[in-house]
């Protein structure tokens, strides 16, 4: 009837008649200070440089949006991120479904493989794909041995290489939120639906699909956003002709020392990322995501 807060001693022995207004602020202070000094300040400073260097104005943004080279990088970034998201979704959905319904021993085994892969050092995994995909690599050699091809396919330093490598990295991030959603579904709902006369396809379309939509959205948005800003795998498996945004930012800073332009590119990447998270938060809450 009344909304009286549950009193508790922990955290503060509050003998005063009124609750303290700033309780707990001292405990967060070190973390807050660290992040303010070494996260907020440098990021804001970088973004400011995009409108201050070489002279105040929006010329950096004009250059980014005016040059076909940079526009191509944007296009390529979205293409790779979209492609990777699509492929991981197609692969991850059946796997998540399998994990939810298969006998415990099988799903536990597959789960172990997924976690092992996710926890393995990123460079080690990328290295594996460089070895597999190179011109004299195992895949090309096997395909030639069985006579499917006569010339080695070009699988690395191009779109194919990046997509395969990124899909490999991103798969766990799609499987886990999907699995978290499917696992919570109540089987009796589906029995009820089919007792109501729905065919298997109708049950899938009218009951299953809407119920897993939030998990799909969480996975899709997370993988897409992570892919947009990814650096290592595209840098090692991609080619110069399909550079992605993160690599561009790195190059602008490291080779060209063009901080203004790098700031502008970083700002654009940030805005897109935050916008997608805002959409997710607005429509789905912080659903299902579990990232390492």
């Amino acid at each position: 009837m009344t909304t009286v807060p549950t009193p508790s001693l922990a955290g503060e022995v509050d003998l005063s008649p009124e609750p303290r207004r700033l309780a707990g602020l001292g405990a967060v202070a070190p973390a807050l200070g660290l992040l303010a000094l070494f996260f907020v300040v440098p990021v804001v400073a970088l973004l400011l440089r995009s409108v201050l260097e070489p002279q105040p104005g929006l010329q950096n943004y004009a250059e980014v949006f005016g040059s076909t080279t940079y526009l191509k990088v944007f296009g390529n970034t979205f293409l790779v991120a979209g492609l990777v998201t699509l492929v991981t979704l197609l692969l991850a959905f059946p796997v998540a479904w399998f994990l939810a319904v298969a006998p415990r021993r099988w799903s536990a085994l597959l789960f172990g493989v997924i976690v092992l892969s996710m926890w393995t050092n990123l460079l080690a995994r990328t290295y594996a794909w460089m070895v597999l995909l190179q011109g004299t690599g195992i895949i090309n050699r096997m395909l030639m041995q069985i006579g499917l091809i006569s010339e080695p396919l070009s699988l690395i330093n191009n779109l194919v290489g990046v997509t395969i490598g990124m899909t490999y990295i991103m798969l766990p991030f799609m499987i886990l939120p999907l699995h978290a959603t499917i696992r919570t579904l109540d089987p009796t709902v589906f029995q009820a639906a089919s007792l109501c006369g729905a065919s298997r396809f109708q049950v899938f379309r009218l009951v299953f699909a809407p119920l897993v939509a939030s998990g799909v959205a969480a996975g899709v948005l997370m993988v897409f956003v992570m892919s947009l800003g990814y650096f290592v795998t595209p840098a090692l498996l991609g080619g110069t002709s399909n550079m992605m945004l993160a690599e561009l930012i790195a190059q602008l800073v490291q080779s060209l020392l063009n901080w203004g332009l790098a700031g502008a590119a970083a700002f654009i990447l940030l805005v897109v990322t935050l916008a997608i998270y805002a959409v997710q938060f607005r429509y789905f809450g912080f659903g299902g995501g579990e990232a390492r």
Binding site: V13, D14, L15
Partner: peptide
């Protein structure tokens, strides 16, 4: 919500 627990908490010192 009748105040019996809150009275007890005052005695325990959970709040003034």
């Amino acid at each position: 919500g009748s105040g019996k627990s809150t009275t007890l908490y005052v005695i325990a010192g959970f709040q003034g």
